[in-house]
């Protein structure tokens, strides 16, 4: 059984390493600051004992007051999982760091989020629309898209 690690335990570890980066931690998820997402992701991937070598899914959600990007991390080695989240509040120009450098899984999925929700991922090698055509106006999965 894949063990779902508690966000609180991980938050304690991360707080020690990167103080002030964790915004909120619950039993099932861990919300971190957007700016420090990349460092925390790298920490989660490379720390022995955590070894999150497998990024299962990247999903974007529009909560109207903010955008939330959800990273489902899994460790094939230790068979445990974690839900990592990051938010951006700037509706006009939402930006988050890209994790393609760590997990290439994010390549197409970040492009998809960029396409459908309009979140730019800084450092993505090939950030362009994936499902819709170039020149499409708006981002359909936003809640205010009609």
């Amino acid at each position: 059984m894949t063990l779902a690690l508690s966000g609180k335990d991980i938050a304690g570890k991360i707080e020690k390493k990167f103080p002030g980066c964790v915004v909120e931690s619950a039993a099932e998820s861990l919300l971190v600051k957007g700016e420090s997402l990349l460092e925390i992701a790298a920490y989660l991937k490379n720390t022995p004992g955590l070894d999150f070598d497998y990024l299962t899914a990247v999903s974007g959600v529009d909560y109207l007051d903010c955008f939330e990007v959800v990273y489902h991390l899994t460790s094939l080695k230790n068979n445990h999982s974690l839900v990592l989240k990051a938010r951006c509040y700037d509706r006009a120009n939402p930006v988050l760091p890209s994790v393609v450098g760590l997990w290439r899984t994010a390549d197409f999925q970040e492009r998809e989020i960029y396409d459908l929700l309009g979140i730019s991922f800084e450092g993505h090698p090939n950030l362009k629309r994936i499902a819709l055509w170039e020149g499409f106006e708006g981002h359909p999965l936003r809640k205010d898209f009609l």
């Binding site: 070598d53 497998y54 990024l55 299962t56 094939l76 997990w103 290439r104 899984t105 390549d107």
Partner: peptide, 11 residues
């Protein structure tokens, strides 16, 4: 060929 490490990395 899809090497083991790459296979994990690309999910």
């Amino acid at each position: 060929i899809l090497p083991r490490d790459l296979a994990i990395n690309i999910g």
